[in-house]
């Protein structure tokens, strides 16, 4: 079905869950006013990004009042949001939730925690261990958190699991100044979101945050990409924004007819070869 998606390109406060919850609620209310069916927030929208030793202090369980409050709001609008999750066995995850109809419809723990360059996630967080597509009132979807999308297998698995909409929550630091029109990180992400949509004949909904943490900027530029890889809506660079865009069912249908790569994708060849590679690596 056709629906409107809102991308809340916000500026979370580092380590301030209560303040960020208010910020999120305001954006949710705006999304409802603007008649969006789904609102997407950035990675770690409830906490901010460079948390370091704050991780245990800001972590929320799936049963926390904050998550319950957002689930309540999802009776009016579907919500994809990022936060730090504490599990019953006291592991901490960089997690994303898809909330709909008053409940948690899907729960994804970031699998690929970048620990290089300016990133240090694996020092503080546990890795998720699955990619699963899920059914929503807008069709079958998949959730990715930032670095997950840089691993080809992640969106591939979700698309093979039937997702036709890939939602990526991001906190991408801006870096790589040159003479080009955009930062290096912006240029790379644009190639990535567009190619992912095109390879998998799927829509990509990308929400990136803005603001600065200890001198590091987050560049925003949230996007809606149609299944042909064309960007249909884009947020401001380095500024807060609230982007809305219409998602068309007909466009998905047409793309899947004209470029049936996902139909022809041979799961069994892929599996066979991956198994062989796994075996050879073990031997």
């Amino acid at each position: 079905m056709d629906f409107t998606v809102a991308l809340a390109q916000i500026k979370p406060k580092l380590g301030c869950v209560a303040d960020n919850l208010l910020l999120i609620q305001e954006a949710v209310e705006r999304g409802i006013r603007e008649e969006a069916g789904l609102i997407v927030f950035p990675e770690l929208a409830l906490t901010g990004y460079f948390l370091k030793d704050l991780v245990p202090e800001v972590a929320l369980s799936l049963h926390s009042p904050e998550i319950r409050r957002l689930a309540e709001l999802s009776r009016h609008i579907s919500i994809a949001v990022g936060f730090v999750e504490i599990s019953p066995d006291y592991h901490f995850y960089n997690a994303a939730l898809y909330l709909e109809g008053g409940e948690i419809r899907h729960h994804h723990r970031k699998v690929y925690l970048p620990t290089y360059g300016l990133f240090d996630e694996q020092r503080y967080l546990a890795s998720g261990e699955r990619f699963r597509a899920f059914d929503s009132r807008f069709g079958r979807m998949g959730l990715l958190v930032c670095e997950d999308m840089w691993h080809l297998s992640a969106p591939y698995i979700l698309a093979m699991d039937g997702a036709t909409t890939l939602i990526c929550l991001s906190s991408s630091p801006g870096r790589g100044i040159s003479e080009a029109d955009t930062l290096g990180s912006t240029a790379s992400w644009r190639k990535l979101t567009s190619s992912t949509a095109m390879f998998l004949n799927s829509r990509v909904i990308y929400c990136n945050r803005v603001g600065y943490e200890d001198g590091v900027n987050f560049w925003g530029g949230s996007e809606i990409i149609d299944p042909s890889g064309t960007v249909t809506a884009r947020g401001a660079i380095l500024e807060e924004d609230f982007v809305t865009g219409r998602i068309s069912e007909a466009a998905l249908r047409r793309e899947r007819i004209s470029s049936p790569m996902m139909r022809d994708e041979n799961l069994f060849v892929t599996l066979k070869e991956l198994k062989r590679i796994g075996k050879e690596r073990n031997s």
């Binding site: 801006g174 040159s178 955009t182 001198g215 660079i237």
Partner: peptide, 25 residues
């Protein structure tokens, strides 16, 4: 030189940095 930069973009980042890092405290 590879050191040449997009001045408008660089300016935006540095101006934003000073504004935000001062206002947020």
């Amino acid at each position: 030189s590879e050191l040449r930069v997009n001045c408008l973009l660089l300016q935006k980042i540095l101006v934003g940095f000073v504004r935000e890092e001062i206002h947020k405290v």
